[in-house]
Every structure is written in C-alpha cells, then in structure tokens.
C-alpha cells in the first residue's frame, strides 16, 4: 500500500522555498538577510501568510508548559558530581582472603555461638546415653551367668556324644 503524504508540497521548487523559509527562522530578526527575505515574502500574499504561520508556530513553542523535576534528583546528581558514588550503590567485590579479616566483635560473637553450640551438643549426648539401675545390673549378670551355665552343659553333652560315637 502506498502511503499518501500528509502534506502536499506541490513540487520540488515549492519544497525548496519552504526549507529556505524554515532556515530563515534561525536568522536574527534584524539581520539584513532576514529583512531581504521578508521583503520578498511580502510580494506574494500566499508566501506572506506562510511566513507569518511559520513565525507564529515557532513562537507558540514558548507557551508550552514546563515541567518541574523532583528536588531529590538534583541532590543525587550533585552528590555524583562531587564524586560521591551514592546514587546507585553496588556491592563491592571482596579480595581473596578478605573475608577472614573480620572485626574483633564479630569473632567474639562467633566464639560465644560456638560455645553454646558445643554445650548443646554435649547435653544432647548425655540425654541419649542408656542409664542402668543397680538392680537391673544384678539381674543382667544373673541372666548372663545362667546362659553361660547352659552353654557349658551343652558343650559337655556334645563332647561326650562325640567320644562315644
């Protein structure tokens, strides 16, 4: 699909005139080149109207609303300009071995933590060990004694049987 131009300049000559007119907007009002150009425009009503429209469109830009930025941005930029890199703080990379160079108070807290950890571990070990009452020990010994007697009887019986056989 061919895109239709929004404006119809009406030929290359007209376009060149239009660009010359736009270029004249940069020339100061009182400059001879501008005065000469305006004099030429005055010769044709169409040109005069176009020039007037261009000048009023340019001056209309001054009436556009201005926006106010937040003060915080200005302060942040000024801090950056002073060389204080505080605008976007990034974590600094640590050198190898630097992690061990901790302040003293951190070592103290780490030691206290380890003492508590060790104490807790020992306490849990104590609780998990089986405890035997004196009466239970005697009963255990008696049972073992009986089992030994029984084993000895069995062995003697097996020996006798082997000799007889």
């Amino acid at each position: 699909m061919k895109i239709q131009p929004l404006f119809h300049p009406g030929g290359p000559g007209h376009e060149a005139d239009a660009l010359e007119m736009i270029r004249m907007l940069d020339i100061p009002d009182d400059a001879p080149a501008r005065r000469a150009f305006e004099a030429r425009c005055a010769e044709s009503d169409e040109r005069a109207a176009e020039w007037e429209g261009a000048v009023s469109a340019l001056s209309a830009g001054k009436s556009l609303r201005r926006f106010e930025p937040p003060a915080a941005i200005r302060n942040a930029v000024l801090e950056a300009a002073r060389g204080e890199r505080v605008v976007i703080p990034l974590p600094e990379a640590r050198k190898p071995g630097e992690a061990w160079r901790l302040p003293g108070w951190r070592w103290a807290w780490a030691a206290i933590f380890l003492v508590f950890l060790w104490g807790g571990f020992m306490e849990s070990q104590k609780q998990s060990e089986p405890t035997i009452e004196p009466g239970q020990l005697d009963a255990e010994l008696l049972t073992l004694d009986q089992e030994m007697d029984s084993l000895m009887t069995d062995l003697e019986f097996d020996l006798e049987s082997a000799l007889q056989g």
Binding site: L6, F7, A18, L19, I22, R23, L25, G53, A57, A60
Partner: peptide, 16 residues
C-alpha cells in the same frame, strides 16, 4: 541539516 529543516517544516504544517 536538510532533513532537520524538512522535519521542522512538517511540524509547522501539521501544527497549523
């Protein structure tokens, strides 16, 4: 520069 002048010309015509 010609492109910029052309853009300004279009802007002015469009605004008018």
């Amino acid at each position: 520069l010609g492109t910029v002048l052309s853009r300004m010309n279009q802007a002015i015509k469009y605004l008018r």
